[in-house]
Design a protein around this nucleic acid. Structure first.
Length: 553
DNA sequence: CTGACTTGCGCC
DNA sequence: AAAGGGCGCAAGTCAG
């Protein structure tokens, strides 16, 4: 953090398949044929500049394909989105003729047909001007340190995301196929149900005396259940579990296996597991809170059921690491709540709350904290709130204040300055006008319901969003540590292959697995320091060195 | 017929 | 009386 700022080098696409490479702010300009860009970047990378570009998804995949990895960048698309929503920023400094174009710029998705040169909306934008605006906005911010950290972390996340898609998650189609066959029977002809589902279907139809029932139709199923005298209003598994009827067993089994077939069956395997790798793509900043979204193959919800198929290459291992109870720890840190930080000293934060006498049981600690962070006020979690508020006034006070601010229609922000969306809708306009009569549409009750729902959103936003910032810092630091552990191309060194909110998978040569484990822990400690400085809140990790993802945890 | 919405369930 | 945050995905449903 003390080294001199990195040089910045801007790259811009120009007509004629040419890329302009410009030393910032006003340095030399080099024009190179697009095909030669990887070589130019590789050579310039020795000085570890910060590459400035409109959007990582428009530049980095091609560089990676050419074997070029960069250490750092500024992703103007992502940084512009953060800055334009941050309450730490003077919005007038970000105005410009193409400001709307920057906010509307979509990432490009691998596999989409390439746009014709300069048909890309990104090419109507001026990255040099946008970079200057962003720099000015950051410099003028009263929180430029925190915000600068967020921009660096967000940009680094963009590099990680591209690298993970490039490398892919090792995936054994043969293992996956065997697993499906064991559970469902052999792969059926197209349009047919697998044998096991057929048998369950027959049992369901018999038990409900509904010979034509399609259990995949919620409407049809609901009608058949009601016709059989079962008092249900929906067909969710959780609802059905409460019932006592011969159909329930086979029906729940059918739902579970049918879900597996639809979401992660043979079709999924053919679509997403090519050449021994599962390659979805990740969208940093894809969620308003700052969490990542993903596209393709449902990467952020790979069920436990199929994780046995994620198998490290021969001679390689996975290092799987996740943070226990990330969000309550983040809440302790951002609120400066020393009592909660004390509980977080334990590997199990909830048990730490019990051991300090704050709550009687671990179950109550957990449900109480989840309620505090999600806005649950019903039943048990609601009953815990007075107790938690007494014991952890700063932590609970922070989320309560975020909820109240949201209900007033105000913007809240994460620790590093990511702002929540501005609420829209009649209730918010009424909140702004302090109780004007409801010509705006919707009843008073509707407005109150929406207002409370928005308060739950902002309550959660500050914690989920700051958790995402911790995770970004963790990823960014880990990425650089992993690079230093190996030699050669990205895929020859230990490298990240998966990230899921508070969990990472590193694919590593077996002999480096222990060092990777240390790097993962060191990066977590560094993330805690970056966000919370000297405040003593721990982020203990579960780290496993395994051959298959299924063997972690 | 297509497209938008709903339902239900997987993950955190 | 109901009252839990954020997603992606597939199939069913229904309007145009």
């Amino acid at each position: 953090m003390t080294e001199r700022p990195a040089a910045r080098v801007l790259v811009v696409r120009r007509p004629g398949d040419v890329v302009e490479v410009r030393e910032l702010p006003d340095g030399a300009v080099q024009r190179v044929p697009a095909g030669e860009l990887p070589a130019v970047v590789r050579a310039r990378e020795h000085d570890r500049p910060r590459w400035v570009w409109d959007d990582t998804t428009r530049w980095y995949p091609q560089l990676l394909d050419a074997g070029v990895r960069v250490e750092r960048c500024v992703d103007l698309r992502l940084c512009g989105a953060v800055l334009r929503r941050s309450p730490f920023v003077d919005p007038s400094l970000l105005r410009g003729p193409d400001a709307a174009g920057w906010l509307g710029l979509e990432p490009v998705v691998p596999g989409e047909p390439a746009l014709f040169p300069l048909a890309d909306p990104a090419d109507a934008l001026d990255p040099a001007a946008e970079h200057a605006r962003q720099q000015a906005a950051l410099a003028a911010s009263p929180h430029r340190g925190r915000l600068g950290l967020l921009l660096a972390a967000e940009s680094s996340g963009a590099l990680v995301a591209a690298e993970m898609t490039h490398a892919g998650l090792p995936w054994r189609a043969d293992v996956h196929d065997r697993l499906l066959t064991e559970l469902l029977g052999p792969r059926p002809a197209p349009g047919q149900r697998p044998a096991v589902l057929e048998q369950l279907l027959a049992a369901i139809r018999t038990a409900l005396r509904a010979p034509d029932l399609n259990p995949d139709s919620p409407t049809g199923l609901l009608g058949a259940l009601q016709a059989a005298g079962l008092p249900v209003a929906d067909t969710r598994s959780w609802t059905l579990e409460q019932l006592d009827h011969p159909v329930i067993g086979p029906l729940l089994e059918y739902k579970k296996l049918s879900r597996l077939l639809q979401a992660n069956g043979w079709n999924w395997l053919e679509t997403w597991a090519r050449d021994g790798r599962f390659r979805s793509w990740f969208l940093p900043g894809g969620v308003v809170t700052g969490r990542w979204a993903s596209n393709g193959g449902g990467a952020l919800s790979v069920p436990l059921q199929v994780r046995p198929a994620a198998v490290a290459d021969a001679g390689w291992r996975f290092v799987v690491a996740d943070v226990a109870q990330l969000e309550p720890r983040v809440l302790a840190g951002m609120s400066g709540d020393t009592a909660m930080a004390e509980a977080a000293r334990a590997t199990d934060l909830y048990q730490g709350m019990v051991d300090s006498g704050a709550v009687p049981t671990r179950a109550e600690a957990k449900v109480g904290m989840l309620g505090a962070m999600y806005g649950g006020t019903r039943g048990e979690s609601g009953r815990m709130m007075p107790r938690l508020t007494r014991r952890y006034p700063r932590a609970i006070g922070l989320v309560e204040e975020a909820a109240r601010a949201g209900e007033r229609g105000e913007v809240v922000h994460t620790l590093l300055g990511r702002g929540s969306p501005v609420p829209t809708g009649a209730w918010a306009e009424r909140a702004a006008e302090l109780g004007e009569p409801p010509e705006l549409g919707g009843s008073r009750e509707d407005h109150d319901r929406h207002r409370r729902a928005w308060g739950r959103f902002t309550r959660n936003f500050v914690v989920q969003g700051t958790g995402a910032e911790w995770a970004l810092c963790w990823l960014a630091d880990l990425r650089n540590r992993l690079w230093r552990l190996g030699a050669g191309a990205l895929a020859d060194r230990p490298h990240l292959v998966f990230f899921l909110h508070d969990e990472v998978l590193v694919h590593t040569p077996a002999e480096l697995a222990d060092e990777v484990g240390e790097a993962v822990r060191a990066a977590a400690a560094e993330a805690g320091r970056l966000l919370f400085g000297g405040f003593p809140v721990d982020f203990p990790l579960d780290v496993a060195v395994v051959g298959s993802w299924a063997d972690a945890g």
